[in-house]
Simulated scan of single mutants.
Amino acid sequence: MRKGWSGRRIEGTLPDNQMNGIFRALDTNGDGKLSRKELKVGLKSFGLRFAGVRAKRAIRHVDANGDGMISEDEIDELTKYASKWRI
């Protein structure tokens, strides 16, 4: 088990502003964009199944400029899209 990981799922849903902050924190290389890999790792940490598929679909859904990444401007749309996952 990973250090600091409780293995418990989050009950209920998070407020949008909190989810936005969490998604921004997933930008591990600090380039201001979320890659598919960064998003996948983050979704796995939430305990979501099929994190790779969900990350791919999320990017396809919210990537308005077509660069294959989720930029700062697209985080709000990612939050709306991810709210159906009950995070």
Rank of each mutant, 00 (worst) to 15 (best):
R2K: 13
R2C: 01
R8I: 08
R8W: 03
R9I: 10
I10G: 05
I10N: 02
T13Y: 00
D16W: 04
D16H: 09
Q18Y: 13
Q18L: 14
N20D: 12
I22D: 05
R24P: 01
R24F: 00
D27P: 03
D27L: 11
T28K: 11
N29Y: 00
D31T: 08
D31H: 05
G32Q: 11
G32Y: 12
G32W: 02
K33I: 03
R36K: 03
K37M: 08
K37G: 05
E38V: 06
K40G: 05
V41R: 06
V41W: 01
G42N: 04
G42V: 01
K44T: 05
K44E: 13
K44D: 05
S45I: 04
G47S: 06
R49Y: 00
F50I: 01
G52M: 09
G52V: 06
R54D: 00
A55F: 06
A55L: 06
A55K: 02
A55G: 11
A55E: 08
R57S: 02
R57E: 08
R57I: 12
V62H: 00
D63A: 01
A64F: 04
A64I: 14
N65T: 01
G66A: 10
M69I: 00
I70M: 07
S71D: 15
S71H: 02
S71W: 09
S71P: 06
D73I: 02
E77P: 02
E77F: 14
L78D: 04
L78S: 01
S83A: 14
K84E: 03
K84F: 10
W85N: 00
R86Y: 09
I87Q: 03
